[in-house]
Design a protein around this nucleic acid. Structure first.
Lengths: 157, 157
DNA sequence: GTGAACGGGTTGATACATCAACCTGAACAC
DNA sequence: GTGTTCAGGTTGATGTATCAACCCGTTCAC
């Protein structure tokens, strides 16, 4: 019963942020899903793969770029391979297979990126304008730094 | 191949925000899970239930408060009931059953809320400080408004 | 060489999110 | 009454996230 009535300014602002993040995220995701038939996870993996000119890279590299757990990535690649967006390729070293972007995957991401970028600008970048955006980003960077420090402290215990 | 190299200021700032949101979220969630054995979904439902003095409310009310789909909520309540955090109660109107917070659920949320709040302050509120926090929240509110307008435009098409 | 340790990947189990299909009892038309 | 409609809930199927267990080549000790 009722921390609610006693919420401070700060907590209400926190809730505003949470609301914003939730809605913005789900809006972008739904758009991607409806217009391009890609989940956020698909999008992320495909973007990383385009960062190689060969459209192909070791799984470990994708894992590093996305910061995903190996297991999560493996499952995701399996599903994406089933849908023909990527394919697994045996490289020289048979232990560490590569992933390659298929033509279908290439087409999908080339359609999705501009649309997604446009949406981000319309809903976020342009809403804030240059100065406020810079302040916002700086705030985010500071929170990120605080998180890193906090994580370090946790590990060294 | 390579929008990456041509990313503008704005896009890099967008990525900073995305990174921050991702890390902050996962940190808070992991803390909640490890320390209190509650998922974010559990936490949300439990908080809503404490907003009634009777520790009990119609399912529809929880749905309205959380803004979840009825199906998602139903599944979640099933799992939470299995773990003894809540129980379903037949109300007068047999169509619309209530959900009640069990003692176990009450204990769990009473442990979790202060810890969670403390974490939010340490990682977010205190990092930004009062003025920057206010600016940040205002930015979030503006983005939220833009989202609403955008949604309206979509519907009226 | 033999085998222990290790990094990297896959698999299975469980929890969560979303969609579509369905159930159920009240309210309304007639 | 009979039946239609409808709001609110449940169920099942599929996709996604996370954890633990396992597998498999290479490397290194001996």
């Amino acid at each position: 019963m009722g921390w609610e009535e006693e919420l401070g300014e700060a907590d209400r602002m926190w809730r505003t942020y949470i609301e914003m993040a939730k809605h913005l995220n789900s809006h972008l995701q739904q758009h991607l899903q409806r217009e391009c038939d890609l989940s956020a996870a698909d999008f992320e993996v495909l973007v990383r793969l385009t960062e190689s000119e060969r459209r192909e890279m070791p799984v470990a590299e994708v894992a590093a770029a996305t910061q995903w757990e190996k297991s999560r990535l493996s499952h995701q690649l399996t599903r994406m391979a089933q849908r023909g967006l990527v394919e697994r390729v045996d490289s020289n070293d048979r232990r560490y297979p590569d992933v390659r972007l298929t033509d279908k995957g290439y087409a999908a991401i080339n359609k999705a990126v501009p649309e997604h970028t446009e949406m981000v600008h319309a809903l976020f970048v342009d809403v804030l304008g240059p100065e406020r955006l810079a302040g916002f980003a700086q705030a985010c960077a500071d929170v990120l730094r605080a998180l890193d420090e906090h994580r370090e402290r946790d590990c060294s215990l």
